[in-house]
């Protein structure tokens, strides 16, 4: 099976998540097991099991010293998936399949290390039929894949992300924003601001067919998937250069907004490669 062979997405939350439940990430609290953190006086942490004998003997003031360890806590991982009609785009790869692959991989990786995974689909509003509450169950992978396969992408807006942001309250979570971000720029800024409390990872679904893969010459009749009409484009090298420059400018403005609210965006194009996601997440 593909899932078993696929490597996990390795992620490290920004900051230290609070919480007392045992999990996989370095937590804010100190706990019994895990990585050594520091030594504190016995009176501060009266835990006789953790008395550091060597440090106690070495203390000239004869105080008793207790070792403290980092607690490892889980963090909730949420995938917010854009389900507007533009996700039906299929160039080099099918955008919907790519998003579904990514969410499945993320769900598998999260649930394997005990992090709850939740899924929210959004278009003009929050899509309740593509909502999965966060759960650590391993069956979440199958549920995600089913939900996304059944979801019809018809909307022509992405305002549902604001509603989704209101639903994601409470402790900081890791939020993966999976979309092609073909939104009006104010909406992008608004959504990022609404989610900036969380560890926000924008995943931009791109396609080489939308920029570098454009033909040098030819007549294209573009048909907007979100119903913005049709347009004839006479491709020629000059226009292609302008087009690619425009796409680059759009990516740059998205990167600027995203970096202001967290991490730079990860570009998911062509094929879902979990290692590339891991490298991006550990590097930023």
């Amino acid at each position: 099976m593909r899932e078993s062979r696929q490597p996990d997405i390795v992620y490290r939350p920004r900051g230290r998540p609070p919480g007392t439940r045992p999990g996989a990430h370095r937590g804010r609290e100190s706990g019994g097991l895990g990585t050594f953190r520091d030594q504190v006086p016995f009176l501060r942490l009266p835990d006789a099991r953790r008395i550091d004998v060597r440090a106690t003997l070495r203390d000239p003031f004869e105080g008793t010293v207790v070792r403290r360890f980092e607690a490892r806590t889980p963090i909730e991982v949420w995938a917010l998936v854009d389900l507007s009609a533009s996700m039906r785009f299929s160039g080099e790869a099918d955008r919907g399949v790519l998003a579904s692959d990514f969410c499945r991989g993320l769900a598998a990786s999260a649930t394997r290390i005990g992090d709850p995974f939740g899924l929210i689909g959004c278009d003009g509003a929050m899509r309740e039929d593509v909502f999965l509450p966060a759960s650590r169950a391993r069956s979440q992978v199958a549920a995600v894949s089913r939900r996304l396969a059944d979801a019809a992408c018809t909307g022509d807006r992405a305002d549902g992300f604001l509603a989704a942001a209101r639903r994601l309250t409470g402790r900081p979570k890791m939020v993966f924003l999976v979309s092609d971000f073909r939104w009006p720029e104010p909406l992008i800024a608004e959504v990022f601001a609404a989610l900036s409390l969380h560890d926000l990872v924008p995943v931009v679904l791109g396609d080489t067919a939308e920029a570098e893969g454009l033909p040098e010459w030819g007549l294209l009749e573009l048909d907007d998937l979100e119903g913005a009409g049709r347009r004839v484009v006479f491709m020629r090298p000059a226009l292609r250069r302008r087009w690619i420059a425009r796409e680059a400018a759009r990516a740059e403005s998205l990167r600027r907004i995203a970096t202001a609210h967290g991490r730079p965006p990860f570009r998911l194009a062509g094929r879902f490669d979990p290692d590339a996601v891991s490298r991006h997440l550990l590097g930023t």
Binding site: D180, L220, E221, D223, A228, R231
Partner: peptide, 10 residues
Amino acid sequence: ATPVASIAAG
């Protein structure tokens, strides 16, 4: 017709 995500991309 070539379906595209956004006609404004060009």
